[in-house]
Design a protein around this nucleic acid. Structure first.
Lengths: 344, 344
DNA sequence: GGGTCGTGATCAAACGCTTGATCTTCATGA
DNA sequence: TCATGAAGATCAAGCGTTTGATCACGACCC
């Protein structure tokens, strides 16, 4: 019993040969017609019969056979270390899928859940399917050591990088940190706290560098008391309230939206209002959090969708010789209601 | 210039023929050895030479060619209407991917973003790749009219259903509503409000039915004043605070976690504490919300991962003749800290 | 010494499709 | 009248595998 309760029992797919028989022509002719070859010389009568046969029989070309002939497939493999760990991975898949699709490629996804053995097997399987190339992506921006199998095909690292490794596409953490701080500075704030994460990462360093850059360009001196670290989750932000209040900051850059959410909670419990008493900006632009906090959280978006798109592009178009080994994608600011403009 | 900056320039993949040449045997022999055919009669010497040649050359079987011969592929197509709209779709993909993988199948994903035309093209493409079957999934549980193309292959509907259509795998909304209400009832609550959504859907009706069933089995009379409707987002929950407070409810079942989050905000602003003053239960078990609210939100999980798994199973194992046209998957309760046990 | 086996390995066809080379017609121009 | 050429369609090889049929060769038995 088949799973589809629907009508006609599944039968062997219609082939070129059968179409040819029905139309009374050779398979070559059918092939030519089916592919609409420009400079094929096919008579109107024959063409018509072929077309008719094709749809009477419901012919579908066999992409696998086509690939065999051409020696290359229209598959792109996507290896991810956790497709569902966060909404982020989904966005990368989404972007990659859209771009691949629009170029006539299909995405073959494999997730390793970070297990190196599963990863090797996944890559082997992709390789056996003769994928055109592989996108190796991680759910948070970090350095990786790319699995050996990757060297057998074109590879692009997405949201991760490896020294001397394949070309990489990563978010511009520094630019993001800059944008975040600038939102506050542009609104007139001068005492701006920065809640960083405790885990070493490009995000930790990059965003802080951006923040510093923003202060510098605005001529605001740095104050170590304003820079703090906390677990990068709601709990961490919540735990920072004391210090933030004590620091006398009027604005806070949070390492991510979850930290911001925790900060919201803590601030509110102390009776402080956002943005009236304290302005807050997040990072990540995690819709489900940022858009629904009260007030909406102004934040900086992590360009996951764009990373997916850029990854596929790099894979398909190749990267110009002599180009840098890494492409950084902008993290654009997203304004909502958590930043108050202070009039000096 | 290729995208992989790494070492050896990508070259045409090694074929059986080349391995055969190097080992000084025929392709048949190599094929036999490579596949470890049980009852193939191969001498030790020949076998050894073949094995050596295989890894010296780094031979990878061509899965496409294999598929051609066998007339069927190891692909499963997954069509979704929004892989990134929510973290949910990702979970379905995750479950499907894990199960498919463990059975030696690869997932071919295509997302239509709800666009019917894109959907038809996606399905056509999957069909051309001779997928073993297709999983058609939606990001929220609803009725659909399955696209025509699906009738050409085995299909399983995931998180959606169609009368007289393909076999479907859906969450048990009624059971979920029941579980939600029972958490409150078990904790001694008797006045339990129910914030439903405003949009017609299996979730709206099913969860309410479950709630009613729970009241009935506990001998609690229904009070229309306790049943309200609101937009199914944070805003909706926030907007319900008045009515909830006025109703005198000590416990509230929310249509989903986001509504619960809004309710948290509203309740807190009014100075009410959770769970001390009001117990709250959500629905969906959206980690990012439920696990990080203060206090943690007790809720009922939507089994997206399991839906994906069950979908693939139904596709691969078929559904027993005479079985129902739908498989419902349990929505298990997840206890956190938002329900207070009231001692009568 | 001839027939019979068992063993080890090869042959060749087939899977569905593409495509350069080839063949057949038939109208055209000299 | 006969090449010439274009138009219309077919041939056949090949893509990388699998696999039932076949072959070569000793060993063995009578």
């Amino acid at each position: 019993m088949t799973a589809m309760s629907g009508s006609e029992g599944r039968r062997r797919p219609v082939t070129l040969k059968e179409v040819a028989a029905r139309a009374g022509v050779s398979v070559s002719t059918v092939s030519l017609v089916a592919n609409g070859k420009k400079n094929a010389r096919i008579g109107d009568a024959a063409r018509a019969r072929v077309l008719a046969a094709i749809d009477e029989l419901g012919y579908r070309p066999n992409a696998l056979a086509k690939n065999l002939v051409h020696g290359e497939s229209r598959f792109i493999g996507l290896v991810t270390d956790g497709i569902a760990s966060t909404p982020f991975a989904g966005q990368v898949v989404h972007g990659a899928q859209d771009e691949a699709w629009s170029r006539g490629y299909m995405l073959l996804i494999a997730n390793s859940e970070g297990n190196p053995e599963a990863e090797e097997r996944a890559i082997a399987m992709l390789l056996e399917h003769k994928v055109h190339g592989i996108l190796y992506s991680t759910w948070y921006h970090r350095e990786v050591v790319p699995p050996a199998g990757l060297s057998e095909t074109d590879t692009v690292l997405v949201n991760c990088f490896a020294d001397g490794g394949p070309f990489a596409v990563v978010p511009d953490e520094v630019g993001g940190g800059l944008a975040a701080a600038r939102m506050l500075i542009a609104a007139g704030h001068r005492r701006i706290a920065f809640i960083n994460t405790t885990t070493e990462s490009p995000a930790k360093q990059g965003r802080l560098a951006g923040y510093r850059h923003a202060l510098a360009e605005a001529g605001i001196p740095e104050d170590p008391a304003l820079i703090m670290e906390a677990e990068s989750a709601q709990e961490g932000g919540y735990a920072c309230v004391e210090r933030v209040v004590a620091s006398g900051a009027t604005g806070v850059c949070c390492h991510n939206d979850r930290v911001a959410q925790g900060l919201y909670d803590g601030l509110k419990e102390r009776g402080l209002r956002i943005p009236d008493d304290v302005s807050v900006v997040g990072f990540d632009n995690q819709e489900i959090i940022a858009a629904h906090l009260r007030p909406g959280l102004s934040t900086v978006a992590l360009p996951h969708y764009e990373l997916g798109v850029a990854g596929v592009r790099a894979l398909l178009d190749g990267v110009p010789a002599g180009a840098a080994d890494r492409l950084t994608i902008e993290c654009p600011p997203v304004e909502r209601g958590s930043v108050l403009t202070v009039t000096a």
